[in-house]
Simulated scan of single mutants.
Amino acid sequence: MPPTIFYTATTLNGFLADDDDSLDWLFAVPGGEGGDSDFQDFLAGIGVLVQGSSTYEWVLRHEDLVAHPEKWPAYYGARPTFVFTRRELPTVPGADIRFVQGEVRDAWGRIREAAGDRDVWIVGGGDLAGQFADAGLLDEIVVSVAPATLTSGKPLLPRDLGADTLTLTRVRQAGAFAELTYAVAERPS
């Protein structure tokens, strides 16, 4: 079965977003908009995306996607996107967005089916990735550490995961970023 991957960027001190769920800090870093060849190779292997409501809402606002749905493919292509939310949210016209509520394990069958034989990308946020880890459904974490800090914000992964769970498998420099890849073992009971 292809892996479920939490692929994200973080500040040097471990925040995904600021207190207002903004990623403006990321786009201020040279290369922060993504798009290097390794990222493009990663994206080519993705069959489905999963994100929380805060991530989804930020992308909608940042790119004004409801008014400009033609921008959606530049982010995610035609891949199905599952958005975990407890609220009713706007959809991007023409995009394959599937809103789900409840536990990640309850939606897992639909997510895997939509991915086919390709990988699942947990886009964000950190708590959602943590829910996948809690359910034993997270296989890998790829985190690009930016040369930036925030005084507060949304944490990278608000869970206790130790060396018995995470194994470093790759380190590379990607422009101004340090990219770290960890295999995630099933958490001990």
Score class of each variant (00 low, 15 high):
residue 28 A to C: 02
residue 166 L to K: 09
residue 68 H to D: 01
residue 114 A to T: 04
residue 2 P to C: 08
residue 53 S to E: 15
residue 107 A to N: 10
residue 123 V to K: 04
residue 64 D to R: 10
residue 8 T to P: 00
residue 64 D to P: 00
residue 189 S to P: 10
residue 22 S to L: 10
residue 16 L to C: 09
residue 56 Y to C: 02
residue 188 P to L: 11
residue 92 V to C: 00
residue 171 V to L: 11
residue 158 P to E: 13
residue 32 G to S: 11
residue 37 S to L: 12
residue 74 A to V: 11
residue 57 E to T: 15
residue 1 M to I: 14
residue 88 E to N: 07
residue 188 P to C: 05
residue 136 G to L: 05
residue 117 D to R: 12
residue 31 G to L: 12
residue 53 S to Y: 06
residue 107 A to H: 12
residue 76 Y to E: 06
residue 151 T to R: 14
residue 157 L to E: 00
residue 152 S to F: 05
residue 89 L to A: 02
residue 181 T to N: 06
residue 152 S to C: 08
residue 90 P to M: 08
residue 103 E to D: 15
residue 17 A to M: 05
residue 116 G to K: 02
residue 51 Q to D: 09
residue 54 S to A: 14
residue 79 R to D: 00
residue 56 Y to L: 06
residue 56 Y to G: 01
residue 183 A to H: 14
residue 120 V to R: 10
residue 59 V to H: 06
residue 13 N to P: 02
residue 185 A to C: 04
residue 126 G to Y: 07
residue 33 E to F: 12
residue 37 S to R: 10
residue 133 A to R: 05
residue 52 G to P: 00
residue 40 Q to P: 06
residue 91 T to V: 13
residue 143 V to K: 04
residue 31 G to A: 13
residue 84 F to S: 07
residue 112 R to P: 02
residue 113 E to D: 14
residue 162 G to V: 05
residue 21 D to Q: 14
residue 15 F to S: 01
residue 22 S to M: 09
residue 47 G to K: 07
residue 80 P to L: 14
residue 13 N to C: 09
residue 176 A to K: 09
residue 83 V to I: 08
residue 186 E to T: 13
residue 32 G to P: 00
residue 4 T to F: 09
residue 141 I to E: 01
residue 33 E to T: 12
residue 188 P to F: 10
residue 112 R to D: 03
residue 187 R to F: 10
residue 112 R to C: 12
residue 10 T to K: 06
residue 67 A to K: 06
residue 29 V to R: 05
residue 25 W to Y: 12
residue 84 F to M: 07
residue 8 T to G: 04
residue 149 T to S: 10
residue 23 L to M: 15
residue 163 A to R: 13
residue 114 A to L: 07
residue 65 L to S: 01
residue 68 H to N: 13
residue 46 I to V: 15
residue 139 D to P: 03
residue 108 W to M: 04
residue 159 R to G: 01
residue 54 S to K: 13
residue 141 I to T: 02
residue 35 G to N: 12
residue 3 P to V: 10
residue 19 D to R: 13
residue 71 K to A: 13
residue 174 A to N: 09
residue 140 E to S: 06
residue 85 T to M: 04
residue 159 R to F: 10
